[in-house]
């Protein structure tokens, strides 16, 4: 580790009150991405705040998923820079949750081993892997039989296993790409509560791509509204209702107003195209 990176790391653990940190967690500068038929991002700049849950929302095909995929290194950017507290992605522990949990989990491993797999990659010994998974399960209050193979679990349970697999490495940043869009409505509502609980418990910087405005506002501290491509920030809308938020939150005037504001901006963007 270089001395600069070391000092950043030590700053994180020297008893400094984390809640007082105001520097952005992830800085995105000059990010560009071009597909053969469209320019998706052209010198895109953005700062992701620390310890917040932000939702990315915007018109279809504007590159919501492409954004987190570039940040998480799944899709190479044509140019630009993404730094996590000044460090490149390769030095950062992060978690990523796919929309398609069925294809993201390993069906040949029981749910427990799926969750522990990232630790295995890191070379953590078996006994400790077991301990850490058990601790996470207890921490989140998960009630799933983790000895089962994923295909015996419901869709929501499988996605919860995916989220736990992303959390097991104690990531600095958690990315979720439309994690609930393959679930039915009942399960979606349940999973929103699970995610909110995870966030309240861990305070991990979280970036959620969503195609559901209600969900985006309900879960987030900020909604990042993107324009049609080439995407730019239309507005970074704050929403600071206290947590835990409940069904009642959704009928409060601040929720309704925030959602209406986002919808107005969104529709303006859609018509502009």
């Amino acid at each position: 580790m270089t001395s600069a990176a070391a000092s950043v790391a030590s700053g994180l653990s020297s008893g400094f009150d984390e809640s007082r940190r105001t520097a952005p967690h992830v800085t995105i500068r000059g990010l560009s991405k071009r597909y053969p038929d469209a320019v998706i991002y052209d010198a895109f700049d953005f700062d992701i705040p620390r310890g917040k849950l932000i939702s990315v929302f915007g018109p279809n095909g504007c590159g919501k998923s492409t954004l987190i995929n570039m940040i998480a290194g799944l899709v190479p950017a044509d140019s630009g820079e993404v730094l996590f507290d000044g460090r490149p992605l390769s030095r950062v522990k992060f978690g990523y949750v796919f929309q398609n949990y069925r294809e993201a989990l390993f069906p040949w491993l029981p749910a427990f081993d799926n969750i522990a797999y990232p630790l295995k990659l890191m070379g953590v010994p078996k006994a400790e892997r077991k301990l850490r998974v058990e601790r996470l399960v207890a921490h989140l209050g998960v009630k799933i039989d983790l000895a089962l193979y994923p295909y015996y679990l419901s869709g929501g349970q499988q996605q919860l296993v995916s989220i736990m697999r992303a959390l097991i490495v104690e990531p600095e940043v958690l990315f979720l790409d439309e994690p609930f869009s393959a679930l039915d409505y009942e399960m979606t509502l349940f999973m929103r509560e699970q995610l909110q609980r995870v966030f309240m418990e861990t305070k991990t910087t979280t970036v959620l791509v969503s195609h559901d405005l209600e969900e985006a506002v309900y879960l987030s501290d900020y909604v990042l509204l993107l324009s049609r491509h080439p995407a730019r920030v239309v507005e970074f809308v704050p929403y600071d209702a206290p947590r835990p938020r409940t069904d009642k939150t959704m009928s409060e005037s601040s929720f309704v107003a925030t959602k209406a504001h986002c919808l107005k901006l969104f529709q303006h963007e859609v018509r502009r195209g």
């Binding site: 796919f98 294809e103 797999y117 990659l121």
Partner: peptide, 20 residues
Amino acid sequence: KTRLLAAKVMGASRTRVLFD
């Protein structure tokens, strides 16, 4: 593809992706 990406994003090397 998602499964390969999932392994890659968790930090699996090419050999690990092949065998795991």
